[in-house]
Design a protein around this nucleic acid. Structure first.
Lengths: 112, 112
DNA sequence: TTATATGCATAATTTTGTTATGTATATAAA
DNA sequence: TTTATATACATAACAAAATTATGCATATAA
């Protein structure tokens, strides 16, 4: 499935924010939530999602446990204390970036 | 200079939009404009800028001419007709992406 | 029994950026 | 005067972060 070419670098922030709001989620659940909220506009591929989750865990921002539901394994992720702090920083940066991007993309012509 | 880690994939759109507003610009001018408008928040490195300009030209979205000013060469870029159409598409996509991203990053907790 | 949905994961590849380097001129500062 | 900074282009080496493809496994609907 082709995601648009704009989703770059913000995936960590999206994941951390989802986990801040929802306490804990498993990978597949995250993909569905992103699809729902973006009304199908942002499709999280597994190839992007799982390595990112693993990296966030390795960096100490997330912790996990697994649970079997209907004979299928789910791996739940939630924020660590450090992750809780980091999400605030990342959201601030993302907000600033979005503002700057909007300023650039709404630039009015220069009157000479 | 370290750009923040969020500027990914939108560089083409930024460049096309600047050229839509300003008719024609040269590379260095683009870096300064981006720095000014983003108040220093987005720094375009040459290693990102020039290859992107060359790609847009190779794709037929931009055309160029060179001019010598104060014994220094400037290479001016402007939109082709195709580039003019493409900028509209890219801006629409970027706008939608920003909306979706904001929806995700402002998600409220789920009440269960 | 076949397709779709759920659920995890990784490897190969591509895209797209950073960092470093190179060339060259003009100007301000030391 | 020579050094740093600004202007102006460009490319190569490298890294980050995605896409695409593949694999395994179970449940359910067609």
């Amino acid at each position: 499935m082709s995601t648009n070419q704009l989703l770059k670098g913000t995936l960590q922030t999206i994941i951390l924010k989802l986990l801040e709001d929802n306490h804990e989620m498993y990978g597949y659940e995250i993909t569905q939530k992103v699809k729902d909220v973006s009304e199908g506009g942002i499709i999280l591929t597994e190839g992007a999602l799982y390595p990112t989750l693993h990296k966030l865990e390795a960096d100490g921002l997330l912790e996990t446990y697994t649970q079997v539901v209907d004979n299928r394994v789910r791996k739940y992720y939630k924020l660590t204390e450090q992750g809780g702090k980091e999400v605030t920083n990342k959201l601030k940066e993302a907000g600033e970036f979005i503002n700057q991007l909007q300023a650039l993309l709404n630039l009015k012509p220069i009157i000479k």
